[in-house]
Amino acid sequence: MFYAVLEGLRRFKIPHNFEFVSIISLYARWIREGRLNVSSAWNTEGLKFTVQDPCKLVRQGIGDEVAEDLRFVIRQVAGEENFIDVWPNKSNNYCCGGGGGALQSGFVQNRRACGKAKFQQLQATGADVVITPCHNCHTQVKDICDHYNGKWQTTHLWNWIVKAMI
């Protein structure tokens, strides 16, 4: 999990020789640099995409910059016109409701109540696909979709990049 490493290195002042990066930042950089060529031509049906901003990566991690990268990659992969943002978004986005150990803690009813706000904002987008770059978010977003009768498909980003690679 991004924050656990980023904040841990900072808080415990752990000496290290590497630079800590998110795969999302790299996807965006590689596409911008032309090292990863993608096209949305595959999306002939006009599948609509929206996104979840993981708290630990965006608000508590890198901030709006990585949220912009994330949207950039999705727009490249799915087509500019096929992306619709959620509100609120980026650093101000709602938590999925499953983070911070909630998925592991087992209070299912509370966790789903906590995910209600997330469900409502995702539902308001009318998107077919919700991209969840974090595994915790992925599990929770899928669960609230099933629980509250959403219709979207919850997926990782990498499947779509591969689909769009040219």
């Binding site: 619709i84 509100w87 539902q123 308001a124 009318g126």
Partner: peptide, 18 residues
């Protein structure tokens, strides 16, 4: 805490819009 568009996004000629 926050202000955001009310209601569902709708598909228009310009793409999605709230």
């Amino acid at each position: 805490h926050s202000v955001w568009p009310a209601g569902q996004a709708v598909h228009t000629q310009k793409g999605f819009e709230y």
